[in-house]
């Protein structure tokens, strides 16, 4: 009995010593001379729930990223406030490139604009790579009397506020899309925000709203039950090639959720470039692209500079629309 106890105690002591020793070793390594990035595991923060689109993409990227970086990539979820909690944390984190986070447009642009304290500014985050877009499309039920975008807009103009449009939340990509459409068409819709894409689709499929703004993957999945009137890409979307774009129909805007990766703004230039290279390698892997496209995403290979310019352009566009429509 007492023998057993002694063994236990020894075991514990050993465990404690090992833990401390391991930690000290890590510290020593960190405190030593600057080592080439990356020399230890990279945290890849997903600002949304597990199981969502950002998460799925990251899970697919992980193996490729680990190969490209040569270190472990640890995916951790930090959901909350539409991503703002994670981005606020990133903005305050050490700018060493060991914490990288998914960033979504328009979220990171709109939140600092409309919230009194979002916890970060768009400029606090340094965009590194843009790899994916989920285009947003507008659809009505299969048995709706409206067959084209023109029909629907004409009806909405004649009956202001009569057409209800389901979408995934306030100040989300869907919300922005309806605002842009209202701004460009002078029609007046009633936007009904839900607490996410899934409940929004439920509301629409149950016939509780007349139209829906939905992500491309939901459109692909439920296309039997709806007529898709327009999609927010610049060119036709590969998975729904018979659906015209908003632009084709005279409304000059694109709608979608863009996903990329970002770091804290003071991250050293060579580290940013290393992350850019790793994501570029993964994003050019044909197998990865094929898998992502099958899930209903549009894939990009856009590096840091072009990405930053894109965000600036989007920011101006969003500020114009929100100001014109009195949302700011």
């Amino acid at each position: 009995m007492s023998r057993k106890k002694t063994v236990w105690r020894l075991g514990v002591a050993l465990l404690v010593i090992l833990a401390i020793a391991g930690q000290t070793a890590l510290f020593a390594a960190g405190a030593g001379e600057e080592r080439a990035y990356p020399s230890r595991a990279i945290n890849y923060v997903i600002p949304f729930d597990a199981g969502g689109q950002s998460d799925i993409t990251a899970q697919y990227q992980r193996a490729g990223l680990e190969r490209a970086f040569g270190v472990d990539v640890v995916i951790r979820h930090q959901p909350g406030a539409g991503g703002a909690l994670a981005w606020a944390d990133l903005a305050r984190s050490r700018a060493d490139g060991y914490t990288i986070a998914g960033n979504n447009i328009p979220h990171i642009i709109i939140q600092p604009l409309v919230r009194e304290n979002a916890g970060y500014a768009t400029e606090d985050l340094r965009p590194v790579y843009l790899f994916q877009t989920t285009p947003i499309g507008l659809a009505v039920a299969a048995n709706s009397p409206h067959n084209t975008l023109a029909d629907l807009i004409e009806y909405a103009r004649a009956n202001p506020g009569r057409v209800t449009v389901s979408g995934s939340g306030t100040h989300s990509g869907h919300h922005l899309a309806i605002l842009q459409l209202e701004y460009l068409s002078d029609a007046d819709f009633t936007y009904i925000p839900a607490t996410g894409a899934a409940p929004s689709v439920t509301n629409f499929l149950g016939g509780h709203t007349e139209a829906i703004l939905a992500n491309s993957d939901d459109l692909v999945q439920h296309q039997q039950a709806m007529k898709i009137l327009a999609i927010g890409t610049t060119e036709r979307f590969h998975a729904l090639s018979d659906v015209p774009t908003f632009m084709e129909q005279g409304y000059d805007f694109t709608a979608g959720i863009d996903r990329g990766v970002t770091v804290a703004k003071d991250t050293p230039e060579d580290v940013v470039r290393a992350i850019e290279r790793a994501f570029d390698t993964v994003s050019r892997d044909p197998e990865f692209v094929a898998e992502m496209e099958a899930l209903g995403f549009e894939m990009h290979q856009i590096g840091a500079d072009e990405y930053a310019a894109y965000i600036e352009r989007k920011q101006r566009e969003i500020i114009t629309v929100l100001t014109e429509l009195g949302e700011l």
Binding site: G80, A81, A84, L85, A88, V114, R115, E116, N117, A118, G119, G169, T170, H171, P193, T195
Partner: peptide
């Protein structure tokens, strides 16, 4: 849920 107001957070990020 609708207008996107941040309520009862007293300007803290965590309560957002």
């Amino acid at each position: 849920p609708i207008e996107g107001n941040v309520r009862f957070a007293f300007r803290t990020v965590a309560l957002q």
